[in-house]
Amino acid sequence: MNEPLLAAAGLIILTVAIGLIRILRGPDDVDRLMAVQLLGTGGIAALLLTAYATGVPGVDDVALGLALLAAFATMAFVNLLETDDDETELGETEP
């Protein structure tokens, strides 16, 4: 029963990898970020599948950590988009 799990993991990795073409193509930074978001979710799925297939201990904690950080990069990015509007606050330390 382990082989199908691994095969599924491989398929997911391959699929989201194709999605990474968005990083290459863009056109906007947001599109690039979406590809990373997809990669993150796919990575978690693949991680869980390999964890259950190979039985390496502690891997579900790794997946837990990744899940916790899934929104991290996107949130930082969206925050920065707003600085275009109100430079005054998030500008550099210098006046």
Binding site: L48, A67, A70, M75
Partner: peptide
């Protein structure tokens, strides 16, 4: 379940 819930939450919010 927590992993799924976290990703769901993050996905929806982002």
């Amino acid at each position: 379940i927590v992993i799924w819930a976290l990703v769901l939450l993050s996905g929806a919010s982002t």
